[in-house]
Design a protein around this nucleic acid. Structure first.
Lengths: 200, 200
DNA sequence: GGTTGAACTGAACGGGCGTTCAGTGACAAT
DNA sequence: ATTGTCACTGAACGCCCGTTCAGTTCAACC
């Protein structure tokens, strides 16, 4: 037996990426073997190398794709208006987007140290572009006088850490719905920025 | 050659733990071999098993020791006074304690999935005890009427995520001193809790 | 100074790792 | 019906893994 009946690269390729994403998120990059991934795909390990150069670039590509999708999704929303409204929008967008892709988010935050220096630089640049989006909102709000933030760079990182933290505990079907969680976090984010909370 | 001159268990034991802590933090539990740790200690791999039952409990013990030290240190500070003052104190304590033990903090947050279920339960219980400390402050402040938090449980996790995020970027000798960072974060934490910021 | 036991070595165990590659069966085009 | 190529197998490569253990050497005590 060599080629499997019905096998096609447009199917196996995506399946490889899905399996790798799920397993890397669950067990960690270093703890997952190519043979495990192959078993999940339903293929022998050697066949994976038709779809990725090696294990390292499989990880790097998953991370880069996630961050590029994040930036593209944010660019597509392109909120206008005053800084307060844009910060509200950013917080909701961040929670929603990250909740929908928990595995990719987890990998993008946990597996940075398993990247080669070149791949790390590529990924880190993407992450920084996203942070800058938030920092720009904070700077604008500071200029408009509607925020009171001691340091926009620190505040940007603090708020992103807070928002991303949702992923560590949020589970669909839990005590709170996602829109309710968004409300609560938007309230805290706006207050932390000195823009008052959500109207109650 | 068998026993090394000058070797003593009171020395090798701690050295094993220090090496494991540093290497686990830098490369991740799964990516570090017992032989690497042994080389760092200056000993053959087999000798490590005089000091730890296996690799897994080496990790679990490092994490448990860290969290127990955290709880003990917080208990020792035992702040009194109104909720606002205690929240201020908590934020400063958290940043200071975590900045001083970056490696242990990193491991305690990143290596949870490498624990056996029994060890995970042990560690998770310790972490939850710490979260409860903060939540109690928030509940007290809510009762006193000096905080305005939509959900104390979520707020506790949000604030801890924000405070722990300092460790991802803070480096001694950078743009901001640690006391200055504490001030900035205390301001954001108090505001997020609805208690106004730091007086300026 | 002989004895005891703690501290450690070095080799071995069975197994899994990432990656390569010659071979092979299934499909599409002719 | 034949051909060509695509998708995949299965075995192999050299290497490293966590852990065990018989043997060796040093330090301390009597």
């Amino acid at each position: 037996m060599a080629r499997k009946p019905g096998s096609r690269s447009e199917i196996t390729g995506p399946r490889l990426r899905e399996a790798a994403l799920r397993l890397f998120a669950r067990d960690g990059y270093a703890a997952v073997s190519m043979r495990q991934i192959a078993a999940e795909v339903g293929v022998q390990a050697g066949a994976l190398y038709l779809y990725t150069a090696d294990k390292q670039s499989l990880l790097a590509d998953l991370m880069a794709d996630h961050l590029e999708a994040l930036l593209a999704a944010w660019a597509a929303e392109a909120p206008r208006g005053d800084a307060r409204a844009r910060l509200d929008h950013f917080a909701r967008f961040h929670i929603r987007f990250h909740a929908a892709r928990a595995d990719a988010v987890f990998i993008a935050y946990m597996e940075l140290r398993n990247l080669t220096p070149e791949n790390f630089a590529r990924i880190e640049a993407l992450r920084r572009r996203y942070e800058t989006e938030l920092e720009q909102i904070l700077r604008d709000g500071q200029a408009e006088g509607c925020f009171a933030v001691p340091d926009t760079k620190l505040a940007a990182m603090a708020l992103i850490a807070m928002l991303t933290g949702v992923n560590t505990w949020f589970r669909e079907g839990g005590r709170l719905s996602l829109p309710r969680v968004e409300d609560i976090y938007v309230d805290m984010v706006l207050k932390a920025a000195g823009a008052g909370g959500l109207p109650r």
